[in-house]
Design a protein around this nucleic acid. Structure first.
Length: 482
DNA sequence: TTGGATT
């Protein structure tokens, strides 16, 4: 309990709040003490906190080292969800140093599998300009390995490998030097210079995102989340903006609910944020009716009235979705509406393996009429500025595809698998240096039966001289030794 | 030949 001494200096637990320098940490007005902090106080970042601990629960743990000026649990800006970390400022600088040495990596809070982090917040050292993001590390490389790699460039203040919830490395890290120049020197020498064992491309060394960039990234990620509504059910048209906004609100609500915060006011804030994004997010995927000859039939989930009239049953990016039946002639050149052909101008001959592939896929599409819908871009003059998020579906919904034609990109991959269900993500792996496809990729559906149907139909599917290999993606922890 | 990653 706090007591007030005769001279008005507040005491807690028998400790004087006057620090070693003789400065008072509290301004006492009657019974109320307004906390004051030293001018050289340090703001600490506290990491690895269980999400069920709030300020009141954390306070006792930290008060042991001195009077707390401010303790704030970090919450997600949009959902209000506890982020598992906090900022802590003691009134006295010394308390911060004591807490750091006593607690940092020294104990693990209940339910956490990594030790608590107690260190000066990034805002303290204006650390952003000397902090590096390191990508393309081998998954088995440790903090020590990374430290060895960087130590010759200067004094390393911090080295952290990013890990998933299970402790597995994400193949990237943060390395903070004591100066910008040291960090720059490391970039100059190490970036792109070598490929780590097990990494798919050469080492990436760059300055870490600033706060602003991080915020932008978050927004993009959130925009990408929209994709959990499959392209099949997303539509823009005369009422496009309304539909889109509605969808975003719904999305925000779902996100809040999914994260366990139920329906709280933050969802409304998130919805407002998303509306703002709606203003520039026009990665408009639109499903359109299947064939001209069956104009009354509409694929599941598509409301005929909402289909914009300017959309036509022509795939913009790859092959036509119309089975080549219009006049009884064999498949002719696909129709491109964006003026860009997916591969260099070539007269389409039957001998062209890729053309065969396209024709084959078209043929395949024809065999799955109910599921098949082409993709069109409704606002062709507006570039799709939100890139397709790479996202995994639930277990059993993610496919690994090998032996893709070199020319296949994300779009072609997606179109090839659309007949089997809602593709929530399609990603062809590309070599960073050459921008060339590595001829394998991933497709994620929103349900396992679509994935199974795709395996059944497409595994062994011949394209040119190669046969596709289509199988379930290995789960992340599959090849971990013990 | 198994997701290009930002506490």
């Amino acid at each position: 309990m706090a007591t007030v001494t005769a001279n008005g200096v507040q005491q807690e637990n028998g400790f004087s709040t006057t620090n070693s320098a003789g400065r008072m940490n509290g301004l006492t007005l009657g019974q109320n003490t307004i906390p004051m902090k030293d001018h050289d106080a340090i703001k600490l970042f506290i990491g690895q906190i269980p999400r069920n601990l709030e300020e009141k629960d954390l306070k006792p743990l930290f008060e042991e080292f001195g009077k707390i000026y401010e303790l704030t649990v970090l919450k997600d800006r949009f959902t209000g969800m506890h982020k598992g970390c906090a900022f802590l400022t003691y009134c006295a600088r010394e308390s911060a140093l004591k807490a750091q040495s006593a607690l940092h990596e020294q104990k693990t809070l209940p339910g956490m599998n990594r030790p608590i982090q107690v260190k000066p917040a990034d805002s303290e050292g204006r650390g952003e300009d000397r902090k590096l993001f390191v990508g393309m590390l081998g998954k088995q490389q440790s903090e020590e390995d990374v430290q060895r790699l960087f130590e010759s460039f200067g004094q390393i203040e911090e080295c952290t490998i990013l890990r998933g919830p299970d402790g597995a490395s994400k193949g990237c890290a943060f390395v903070k030097f004591s100066s910008h120049a040291e960090a720059q020197a490391a970039i100059n020498t190490l970036h792109g210079g070598q490929t780590m064992p097990g990494a798919s491309s050469s080492l990436v060394v760059k300055f870490a995102d600033t706060d602003k960039e991080r915020t932008l990234r978050r927004m993009h990620q959130m925009a990408g989340q929209l994709g959990i509504f499959s392209p099949m059910t997303i539509q823009f048209g005369a009422y496009g903006a309304y539909t889109h906004t509605q969808m975003m609100q719904q999305q925000a609500t779902l996100m809040a609910a999914a994260q366990g915060s139920y329906l709280n006011p933050m969802a409304a804030i998130a919805a407002a944020q998303m509306q703002q994004m709606a203003a520039f997010n026009v990665n408009g995927l639109v499903a359109t009716p299947m064939t001209p000859s069956s104009g009354t039939s509409t694929p599941p989930g598509i409301s005929a009235t909402a289909v914009p009239s300017i959309a036509t049953p022509i795939g913009v990016n790859g092959f036509s979705a119309i089975p080549p039946q219009t006049n009884g002639q064999p498949a002719s050149e696909p129709i491109y509406t964006n003026g860009i052909h997916p591969y260099p101008a070539q007269s389409p001959t039957v001998a062209d393996p890729l053309q065969q592939a396209y024709a084959g896929v078209q043929h395949y599409a024809a065999a799955y009429p109910a599921a098949y819908a082409p993709i069109s871009q409704v606002f062709p003059q507006q570039p799709a500025i939100i890139p397709q998020q790479q996202r995994e579906g639930p277990e059993g919904c993610n496919l690994f595809i090998y032996h893709l034609p070199q020319e296949f990109g994300d779009t072609e991959l997606m179109q090839m698998f659309l007949p089997f269900g809602n593709v929530i993500s399609a990603k062809v792996f590309v070599d960073r240096a050459t921008n060339q496809s590595k001829c394998f990729g991933f497709v994620s559906f929103d349900n396992p039966s679509s994935a199974q149907a795709a395996i059944q139909a497409m595994n062994g599917f011949q394209i040119g001289m190669k046969r596709l290999k289509v199988q379930l993606k290995r789960p992340k922890d599959a090849n971990r030794p013990y």
